[in-house]
Amino acid sequence: MQELVKEIYTESIQAQIAAGEALPSALESAALTIVQSLINGNKVLCCGGSNNYMLASHFANLLVNFYETERPCLPAIALSNELTHLSSYATPAMNDSFSRQVRAYGQPGDLLVVITVTGNEKEIISAVEAALTKDMQVIVLSGNDGGELAGLLGPNDVEIRVPSKRPSRIIESHLFNIHCLSELIDLTLFPQDDS
């Protein structure tokens, strides 16, 4: 069993090395896009499909609070995957939950950050479509081939696609990428004096 544990660690490390080679440009672009949107007085809406909902909430929390160094709050909202606040009459399908919130809270210039493993979750696709109709930019954290979402993105949108097919490795990389984005955003908006 210990050998299996070592194999799992090795696979995870190899996936992170591959992501480290493939993603720096996308992470830089995403961080600068978020920073510019915040400087312009806009907000960040975050959502994640199924296993990635907690990551979307975590990223919004890091923006509102702070990553490692205390700083002023940044406007971010984690869209709810709970339907309790939506009328059952108005929402016949779960697929509308995120898109309805994007239409309710999103404004032109705001950002939608979506976190997905496959890029094929209907509720995430609907949220991105709603954001695009509101002239919002979209940042997608995805994996494998990017799924259907990859085809929806325009030239001003950013895709951070983890080069892996294993859902567990993609989710691990998403958490790392969220922390990387948080650090880049904080250091750009609130530079630290090293002296």
Rank of each mutant, 00 (worst) to 15 (best):
L149S: 07
I13R: 11
A76G: 08
L132E: 13
S182P: 03
S12V: 01
T69A: 06
T69R: 15
K43D: 01
A30M: 00
L112N: 02
K43N: 01
R103W: 01
P92Y: 14
H58D: 11
A130M: 01
L141S: 10
V64A: 10
T84I: 09
D96K: 13
Q107V: 00
S57F: 10
I13A: 12
Q101A: 09
T69Q: 08
D145N: 12
A76Y: 07
N156Y: 03
R166M: 13
V114G: 03
S88Q: 15
T91S: 13
I171E: 12
N81H: 15
R100D: 10
V162I: 15
S80P: 01
G147L: 09
M1N: 07
S88M: 14
I13L: 10
A26M: 00
P92V: 12
L149K: 04
N95E: 15
G49K: 08
A18D: 07
A127R: 01
L189I: 06
T118K: 04
V128K: 02
L152V: 02
S87P: 11
E172Y: 05
V117C: 02
S88K: 14
L111G: 04
Q36N: 11
S88R: 15
P92M: 09
E183N: 08
I170G: 08
S37R: 08
F98V: 07
L32E: 14
F98T: 04
F176C: 10
G146R: 00
S87M: 13
A127E: 08
V5D: 07
N61S: 15
Q36P: 03
A31Y: 04
A22D: 05
R169L: 15
L152H: 00
S50W: 09
P167M: 10
G154V: 06
D157F: 01
P92C: 10
C47V: 02
S182L: 02
F190A: 01
L32Q: 14
S168L: 12
P191N: 04
S182T: 12
L63N: 06
L111H: 02
